[in-house]
């Protein structure tokens, strides 16, 4: 039923589950922000970009590493971060992944390979190299994913990191989620090349330009890069084309698009499209997917309840985790 290098139905269902889980959480984060309940203070929506990490993480295990950015909740959820702790972190609770001390921009959960989340544009890539360097030295076949936006491909850290990764053949995959805009600056006003993937050639590594919102294509691109890294052949730059549906931050009027551009992109929303595909190809029934979605709704509800019931951190936490020695 599958040809070599093509995702099989189980894979596509898995991608759908991850993407739908991200979507459900995103919707709930939005309404929590709007209602103010839970006291979530900041939120960067990844809506529109869910397929990219969902396809990639299908090919990873908890042993593999992820370094992502402020707009990274989709990456974290796809990578399997437990939702209870994630929500508690967003709500600033002591039961959060980081005891409420990191917050949305600094979510960390080493058990699922969520090693670092950075709020600094470009900050993910140098650290990803280090994780990959350790894997290479230890001779294991772990890979590291460095996630970042199109804007980040214009910062020095991108260029330093790709060069070093290539010189050392590090098992790292640079995943540029090109949502066509950096905060409020449109792609072409800030980036000198038509395709970021073209920059890979300057560093002697493969550059893959792919429709990140197409689960089949995205999965195939990720597989090539991950296989290459696991085989010790070195890094790959993937430019995954996507769209930012909800603005930079909640409340952003997001007025930088041409007329109809965003609406058209939202009409091509990849999650309902994948849903239809699964049903049309007989990979799942409407009932199957409804069942899955109900399960996801329940997960989100449980996670929100967990966060709501959790205590806020003690003021003494200010003095903890600054240094190895406690004050």
């Amino acid at each position: 039923m599958t040809t070599l290098g093509q995702p099989d139905p189980a894979t596509l269902l898995d991608i759908y589950e991850r993407a739908a889980r991200i979507r459900k959480n995103d919707e709930a984060f939005h309404s929590a922000m709007q209602s103010g309940k839970l006291g979530i203070r900041i939120y960067y929506s990844p809506r529109g970009q869910e397929i990219i990490p969902s396809a990639i993480c299908n090919l990873l295990t908890d042993e593999d590493y992820l370094v992502t950015i402020y707009r990274g909740v989709h990456d974290q959820i796809a990578k399997g971060i437990p939702l209870n702790e994630l929500w508690a972190e967003y709500a600033g609770r002591v039961t959060g992944t980081c005891k409420g001390k990191g917050g949305p921009m600094h979510v960390t959960h080493p058990e699922t390979g969520n090693m670092v989340t950075t709020g600094i544009v470009g900050g993910s890539m140098p650290i990803a190299n280090g994780l990959a360097m350790a894997s290479q030295m230890d001779g294991n076949d772990r890979v590291t994913i460095a996630s970042f936006g199109d804007g980040a491909s214009n910062i020095g850290a991108f260029h330093e990191s790709l060069n070093m990764a290539s010189v050392w053949k590090l098992p790292v995959i640079f995943v540029c989620q090109n949502n066509l805009i950096a905060e409020h600056t449109r792609y072409e006003k800030g980036t000198s090349v038509e395709r970021i993937a073209d920059r890979a050639s300057a560093y002697g590594m493969p550059g893959i330009h792919v429709n990140g919102n197409d689960p089949l294509e995205m999965w195939k691109a990720a597989k090539v890069a991950i296989d290459r890294a696991r085989a010790g052949e070195g890094p790959t730059l993937i430019e995954a084309m996507t769209f930012r549906f909800m603005g930079h931050l909640i409340g952003d009027p997001d007025e930088h698009w041409n007329e109809g551009e965003k609406e058209a992109a939202m009409e091509r929303d990849p999650i309902p499209a994948l849903r239809r595909y699964l049903i049309d190809h007989g990979h799942a029934t409407e009932g199957d997917l409804q069942g899955l979605e109900e399960k996801l709704d329940q997960e989100v509800e449980d996670a929100m309840a967990f966060a709501a019931e959790s205590a806020k951190p003690d003021i003494l936490e200010l003095q903890k985790d600054v240094f190895a020695e406690e004050k």
Binding site: M115, P126, I127, G130, T144, A157, S161
Partner: peptide
């Protein structure tokens, strides 16, 4: 920046 990042990343895992 890449030197420092590489050191940091490797230090996170032993």
């Amino acid at each position: 920046e890449a030197i420092m990042g590489a050191a940091i990343g490797a230090s996170l895992v032993g």
